[in-house]
Design a protein around this nucleic acid. Structure first.
Lengths: 105, 105
DNA sequence: TATCGATGCCTCGTTATACTATGTATGTCA
DNA sequence: TGACATACATAGTATAACGAGGCATCGATA
């Protein structure tokens, strides 16, 4: 899998993960791999800096929780993040539609 | 349009353009814009270096032609380029399918 | 005939972003 | 107790599209 394809899509993927429930970094890496049937294998060096960046932009917010045994840093999406998610989903749809048009699909 | 989305997809788009007939750089920029209804606007600083790179990799080959009035540098796809195009199309399909899966489409 | 926009090719330096490599700590199980 | 999975973090690197600029030609028009 060409990693360049990921560029510009990581943000929408990550925000989408928070759509249902709070998640923590390590768990997301595993879940991504599962959900995409191995197509995506997010690296820690990719995900953690990205989570910090999304938090700086107020799209997500974090809290520590240890009630499940291990100490984990959970993130949940904010209202601003929900708006951004909608925009980014639109952007992806438009892009993939245009590219599919060029490729003749 | 987030330009990062383009990364990793420019090669397949350009190779696809040569599927039918030889093309020249400036004409491709105009045609891209038209085909994607304005979604893609390839810049000269993007396209020309990429064409040179594809030629170095033997995916395309160039020839000058002036028979149509203006002197233009045309490119056509090679057999190797055709193989690469098939691979890249597969890669795109797999990627977009996986991402659509995550986004719930 | 002078000018100006469109056509046509090119390249250097910048910027954005995913990754590699590495470090640290804790829990689990043989 | 030693190995491995879990869990978070960051400094440096590689790469790819782009911005900005240069140069030349052609057609239209003032």
């Amino acid at each position: 899998m060409n990693k360049e394809l990921l560029k510009g899509t990581t943000e929408v993927m990550i925000l989408k993960m928070f759509d249902k429930e709070p998640m923590y970094g390590y768990g997301m890496i595993k879940k991504f791999e599962l959900m995409s049937k191995g197509t995506f294998k997010f690296k820690e060096g990719t995900l953690y800096p990205l989570l910090h960046s999304l938090e700086r932009k107020k799209y997500i917010e974090s809290f520590w929780d240890s009630s499940d045994g291990r100490r984990r840093k959970y993130y949940r999406i904010t209202d601003l993040g929900c708006k951004q998610l909608v925009d980014k989903e639109k952007e992806w749809l438009e892009f993939s539609k245009a590219l599919n048009g060029i490729l003749g699909y």
